[in-house]
């Protein structure tokens, strides 16, 4: 059922962040993001203070969705890597495990070759964690995940006051 939620626990978040922190350093990148295909930001690494990360996540997902649409028209399963080259900054976007999107922003202190190489390794590690996470979500929710079941109608009403 496509309506089940994607749930990420503290431990998974730490593992994911450790991988993208390392990717940031190894690829000499400015920023690294992990975004869900629906446009939700999962984790980021690097200096994001001056950046609208929410919009970036949403537009990245839109970009991947549009490219996926193009792929389908051409009979491809997906285009797993996108690269946008700017005057100063470049964006490398890749799909991990068909479910999440890895975004690396880098300038001339790095190179496309280096980024591709490091992304490949990090993707494999991320894929393992994401797979586990999805597997857990598909299985029966644990008591902790059912925490949301305790939300009362009054809680919901309170949001609007």
């Amino acid at each position: 059922m496509p309506t089940s939620s994607l749930i990420m626990f503290e431990e998974e978040f730490k593992q994911i962040t450790a991988i993208i922190d390392r990717l940031l350093k190894d690829a000499n990148a400015k920023l690294v993001f992990l975004v869900d295909k629906d446009g939700q930001l999962i984790a980021s690494s690097g200096d994001t203070r001056d950046l609208d990360t929410t919009s970036l996540a949403s537009l990245t997902a839109g970009n991947i969705a549009a490219t996926g649409g193009l792929a389908k028209l051409l009979g491809e399963k997906e285009f797993s890597i996108l690269f946008h080259e700017g005057e100063k900054d470049n964006i490398h976007i890749s799909i991990v495990g068909q479910r999440v999107i890895l975004v690396v922003i880098f300038d001339n202190r790095s190179s496309l070759g280096l980024v591709r190489l490091r992304v490949k390794k990090a993707s494999e590690e991320l894929n393992t964690i994401i797979k586990k996470l999805l597997h857990r979500v598909e299985a029966k929710p644990s008591a902790e995940e059912n925490l949301l079941a305790e939300i009362s109608d009054a809680d919901i009403d309170k949001l609007f006051h």
């Binding site: 749930i7 626990f9 503290e10 978040f13 939700q40």
Partner: peptide, 15 residues
Amino acid sequence: MSFINYSSREINCKI
């Protein structure tokens, strides 16, 4: 699909 992040304690939904 909603995204529930226990680390940042956020619930994200798409409308």
